[in-house]
Design a protein around this nucleic acid. Structure first.
Lengths: 112, 112
DNA sequence: TCCCTTCATCGATGGACGTCGATATACTAT
DNA sequence: ATAGTATATCGACGTCCATCGATGAAGGGA
C-alpha cells in the first residue's frame, strides 16, 4: 500500500519510539499513588521530617485503618519507608523516588 | 513555585497546619491524571512535539473514544492543550504545568 | 447535495479505589 | 499472664474509572 500517502493528506509523522517496556506502567503506578489529596498531605507532612502513624492519625480526620491504607499505598509505590521502633512506626519519604519523578516531569521543560 | 516542604519542620506536633486549602486536592487531581499508563505514554509522545489524535489512535491499541477520553482527562487537568486546524485536532503539552508539578516533587535532598 | 473522515460525547459495564468497623498482630507495662 | 496501646489487615459497601460500541458534530472533497 503505497498510493494512499500520496493522495490522502497525512496529518502526522510516523510513530516515535515509545517508552521502554513497563516504564509507563511503573511511572503511572507512582503517580497514581500521588493522586489522592490525603496522600499528598501525608507526603507533605513527611517531607518536613519523620513522623509516626499516631501523629498522622491525630492530624487527619480519617479512621486509623484508612491512614494505614494510604501509607501502604505510598509504601508499595516506593515513595515512603517505614521503620518500627518499639511500639511506634516511623515513616519517612524516599527522596530518590520523588526526585526521579520530578526529573521525569522536568524533561518537558522548555529549553529557553 | 511550591514544594512539598512548604512548612517549617515540626516533628511531633499533632496539629501541624496542612497545605493551603484546596492545594492538596489540586495537586492530587493533576497527579491522578498522570496515574494511567496510557496517559503517561500520550504525554511522553506529546513531549516530543505536537501530535494529532489520528496519530495517537494509530499508536495505541485502544479504541478512538478511549483515546479521546484520556485526552479529555489530560485537558481537564491542564496538562495538555488542543487546537483544531481543519479536520484535525492537534495536542501539545502545557510545559508550565508539568514544570510546576516537577518543582513540587523536588524536595530538598540531603547531600549524600 | 451526498458521502467520507476526524474527533467528541453518550450510555453501559466490569473492575478498581477510598472508607469504614471489626479484628488481628506486636510491643509495653504492671 | 493480663491489660492496654499502636499499627496492620480483613471484609464490606458505595463511588469512581477505563473501556467499549453507538452516535453526534464538524469539516472536506467529488
Amino acid at each position: 500500500m503505497k498510493t494512499l500517502a500520496v493522495i490522502t493528506p497525512i496529518c502526522c509523522g510516523p510513530d516515535t519510539p515509545a517508552l521502554p517496556a513497563g516504564e509507563a506502567e511503573a511511572l503511572a503506578a507512582r503517580f497514581k499513588a500521588l493522586g489522592d489529596p490525603t496522600r499528598v498531605e501525608i507526603l507533605n507532612r513527611l517531607a518536613k521530617g519523620e513522623a509516626c502513624v499516631c501523629d498522622l492519625n491525630a492530624t487527619f480526620d480519617l479512621s486509623q485503618p484508612t491512614i494505614s491504607h494510604h501509607l501502604k499505598v505510598l509504601r508499595d509505590a516506593g515513595l515512603v519507608e517505614a521503620s518500627r521502633r518499639g511500639t511506634w512506626a516511623y515513616y519517612t519519604v524516599v527522596a530518590d523516588a520523588l526526585a526521579e519523578l520530578s526529573g521525569v516531569l522536568a524533561v518537558s521543560r522548555p529549553a529557553a
